[in-house]
Amino acid sequence: MIHLENVHKAFANGHAALAGVDLEIARGEVFGIIGRSGAGKSTLVRLLNGLERPTAGKVEIDGIALDGLSGEGLRALRRRVGMIFQNFGLLGSRTIFDNVALPLRIAGADKARIAARVPELLARVGLADHRAKYPAQLSGGQKQRVGIARALATDPDILLCDEATSALDPETTRSILALLGDLNRELGLTIVLITHEMEVVRQVCDRVAVLHAGRVVEAGSVADVFLRPRAAETRALIDEDGEDARPLAFDGPLARLTLQGDAVLQPVLTRIARETGTDFVILDGRIGRLRDASFGQLTLGLSGGNTEAALAALRQHGEVAA
């Protein structure tokens, strides 16, 4: 649905924000783009609705090349691509109702349609009672919900999220991400989300690309990238996600066990310990969810018994790396 080919973007001051990006984003997926500030994420997401133009390369949405668009063609495309922002981008001088109605008014919708559609959108994001308020009277999470309602007003196929939760506290972030996940499932909305937080990618994304210095250094399913990172930049981002990168010293054989799906809920370690006589020391570990799937990843020290047999048994439940 979204296709980027060898996209470059250099600014007038000579700074190269993007240096050859290829990306393929499928209809109906939640696609994360993660990277540090300055990696080019904001520029990349703005190419997808023509707020920025590439200096070279191809950007296509549903086969339509964006660089050929201007005037009415570009405005028509923008009505199909909603966008939400870190600072929400609401109009402080307008009520919540008028903020959500704005894209409809710009698209030339009549009064009856606006009067029907806006309450529907506000109800969808849980703000039905706030229509007459002004943005300054709302909390950050509520403001982002208004932003989402406004972005959905013209029934877009794609929603772009520019650090949409970076200004929010962790609890509000979770509720906004849950809303985005619901919209993706219920409306089949394709979501492209940029963030610098691995936590955001883990909670809501299906696939992810890691952007570093204007290039995609790694891309794939969130489980692959998160559990089996290949690029050093990806590992660094994961380590920042509440992990201590320094392993504990253990005198004996080590195994890194990765479990996904049902295996996470099986009593794997105790069963193998009973069967082989090998005891396990847990040196590092994390257990949790990637969007809706469960995962566990443990670094184990093996002690006593038949360690070879224990390693073989571990391999039957998940991946083992030494």
Binding site: N49, R79, F85, L90, L102
Partner: peptide, 21 residues
């Protein structure tokens, strides 16, 4: 706010819409 201007442009606003709305 820069985000406000971008948000209105991203809705498919003309420059006239941007200025007056």
């Amino acid at each position: 706010d820069r985000n406000t201007i971008e948000a209105v442009q991203a809705m498919g606003a003309t420059t006239r819409d941007l200025v007056f709305r």
